[in-house]
């Protein structure tokens, strides 16, 4: 069975290591915060200018001056810091954020990502995504493996306007976990009940399957 959004988020959460500063994009990446192991400490960065983002507020805690990059009301954890957008992107562009997780429309075998614009539809803008993919040393994309018509989103070459080039190192989908290196997708893990053949059929870009492919583990 393909993973649900929550299950993808659970698998993403396993990528967060103790002591990491992490930027989680809107959607599935944000959900991952709910599944971070209690054995580790991570600090969440929100690119509007908050390091140490906490959970959503209770009704009593709601403050219009405390929002995240998705414009949602949030809280700050103990040890948080708040700063300007220039400072925020200095830490992003400067490579100080350990891990960025974001969604995409397409990713290709050279690590290119398209995530902000579908020609012919209204262009809403890239927000901070272009800075994030240009800056983080470690970037993971989460998305469904194929679109709702069954077309692969893991391509030989992105067809939509790019958000960044040669920057994506890992993709976590509803079917699989894959590394991107040396101009190919490398299959690392399959979702429970998903065959290697299905992943192959739904991956349009070059896919390398080693003998060590595992099934994803969930605790």
């Amino acid at each position: 069975m393909a993973l649900t959004r929550e299950q993808i988020a659970m698998r993403v959460a396993q990528e967060l290591q103790d002591g990491f500063y992490v930027n989680l994009g809107i959607g599935i990446p944000t959900l991952a915060a709910n599944y971070v192991s209690t054995d580790i400490e991570v600090m969440l960065q929100s690119e509007n200018g908050l390091l140490g983002m906490g959970p959503y507020p209770t009704e009593d805690q709601v403050d219009p001056d405390m929002i995240n990059a998705g414009k949602e009301t949030v809280t700050a954890v103990k040890g948080a810091s708040i700063f300007s957008s220039a400072e925020s992107f200095a830490m992003i562009r400067g490579g100080h954020v350990d891990l960025t997780v974001l969604g995409a429309f397409e990713v290709d075998q050279n690590g290119n990502i398209a995530s902000y614009m579908i020609p012919g539809k209204l262009v809403k803008g890239m927000g901070g995504a272009m800075d994030l993919v240009a800056g983080a040393p470690n970037i993971i994309v989460t998305m469904t493996h194929a679109d709702k018509h069954g077309n692969s989103k893991l391509l030989e070459s992105c067809t939509l306007p790019l958000t960044g080039v040669n920057c994506i190192k890992k993709v976590i989908t509803d079917l699989a976990v894959l590394d991107i290196r040396d101009g190919a997708f490398h299959l690392l893990e399959t979702a429970p009940g998903i065959s290697v053949e299905e992943v192959q059929a739904k991956t349009k870009g070059k896919l390398i399957v080693s003998d060590s492919v595992r099934e994803m583990q969930f605790n």
Binding site: E47, A86, F89, M126, G127, G128
Partner: peptide
Amino acid sequence: VELTPQGTLAEKM
């Protein structure tokens, strides 16, 4: 409309 990445916009200012 001139779309500008958020960090680039902050740095331009």
